[in-house]
């Protein structure tokens, strides 16, 4: 059981990394007039880690995911910092969204399969927004360009949300 979860997450890590780094990275660059956005798919790796993952490990995995993506984007630390941030706030977001019967921390995994589509959508979109906002704050790196951060965040968020939900629908991960 536990081994299955580890294998599933390792495979997901590799698949998302390649999808992000080799495919989605190029899409904004191919468009000429409208390219002030990025498509984020890899944060779903952090969203789908089981609840029993210890918080420090969760953050470390967020860092690993982010820094690996950074290798493809040639932007050391930018994606990583967003990954770390989202992994850090994940337990707090989860506790806000806690269903009436609570979580069973030892076995629950934050999936549609377990909690339903509306729970998962709220959970993942909050985290996704936080991720993208943090990403652009670091990437643009000054609140002097506050509106650019907001604008890029909103554009990227709307496009990425579609991809995240598409990923969820296509693969419907259970582990």
């Amino acid at each position: 059981m536990s081994n299955n979860i580890i294998v599933a997450n390792v495979l997901r890590f590799i698949f998302l990394l390649l999808l992000q780094g080799l495919v989605l990275q190029r899409i904004p660059n191919m468009l000429e007039n409208f390219n002030q956005f990025e498509i984020f798919i890899y944060p779903i790796f952090i969203f789908l880690l089981p609840f029993k993952t210890p918080h420090p490990l969760l953050i470390l995995l967020g860092f690993l995911m982010g820094i690996s993506v950074d290798f493809f984007y040639d932007s050391p630390g930018v994606h990583a910092s967003a990954g770390v941030f989202v992994a850090y706030i994940r337990p707090f977001v989860a506790s806000i969204l806690q269903p009436r019967e609570g979580y069973n921390n030892s076995i629950d995994i934050p999936t549609v399969d377990r909690f339903g589509i509306s729970w998962f959508a709220t959970y993942s979109l909050i985290l996704l927004f936080a991720h993208i906002f943090f990403y652009y704050a670091v990437e643009i790196f000054t609140f002097w360009y506050f509106w650019k951060i907001i604008l890029n965040t909103i554009t990227s968020f709307m496009i990425s949300a579609v991809f995240i939900m598409l990923f969820q629908t296509l693969f419907n991960p259970k582990a």
Binding site: L60, A80, V84
Partner: peptide, 14 residues
């Protein structure tokens, strides 16, 4: 602690 440490590392890299 891990959050601060890794975030610090990220900023250093950035």
């Amino acid at each position: 602690v891990v959050f601060l440490a890794l975030e610090g590392l990220c900023m250093y890299l950035v």
